[in-house]
Amino acid sequence: MTENYEDMEFFAPGHGMCAGCAAPIIVKWVLKLSGPNTIVVNATGCLEVATTAYPHTSWRIPWLHVAFENSAAAASGVEAALRATGEKANVIVFGGDGGTVDIGLQALSGMVERGHNVLYVLYDNEAYMNTGIQRSSATPWGAWTTTSKVGKANPIGKLRPKKPIARIIAAHNAKYVATANPAIFQDFKKKVQKALSYEGPRFLHVLSSCTTGWRHDPSKTIEILRLAADTGLFPLYEIIDGDIENMRITYHPKKFKPVEEYLKMQGRFRHLLKNPDLVKKLQDDVNAWWEKYGYH
């Protein structure tokens, strides 16, 4: 067993992330579990902007930012250099949903296909939050954003469902892929540890709430994220070696809560609650997913 660094902080306090943002919780715990022999590559986004205002930094491990869409490629280069020199270190990417699921998807696909020994952590707050809440392909159906506005002609908001990025990456035969949620902490922790234990391309899709974009009370972050799991809206599973057929669901809510409980805590879904048909559609979608995959 490797050394335990859980009492140490590699992501220093005093950064500029919002109170109630889930991303720092995710980052700090991934680093506690990876330890100091780690190189981080960070995509452009809130996390990068709010933690590295020159000449200050929140990072007590080596950290690299290149641009928005190319973190997976930059990490490929870091990892190739490690191979060239024979050094061993964890290479971990932190990217948001825009930088991962939209503009960074090509670089990520390339990194995984080439088999780089990199752990890619997507912290998914389901929109372009750094630029002010624009819809991304990770924004769920029915969410209001500043580019999926709700009005007379569109009572729904975003009209398309969320891109299933974990399954897309798993389909590349990635070594390890899992969805995770910091509010389901033991499951989250186990998956980070498991991901760190493997060699090869690994991908963690972690749900991360955004107080300003989701429009919620900053003290309710963990509560809301727990509801994402307990309503079944964000299922937690893992896929090893691209074996999607044998995807394993790692968290089964004892009793599913109605999606309404999750929706009503967030301003971005407020409009849906005015229309029971829309809430029902979402509930039906969740039920259908669990009916189809819930036995895994």
Partner: peptide, 11 residues
């Protein structure tokens, strides 16, 4: 981008 990553590592 990979060139930047590798060069940043010092090779």
């Amino acid at each position: 981008s990979a060139a930047i990553g590798a060069s940043s590592k010092g090779v």
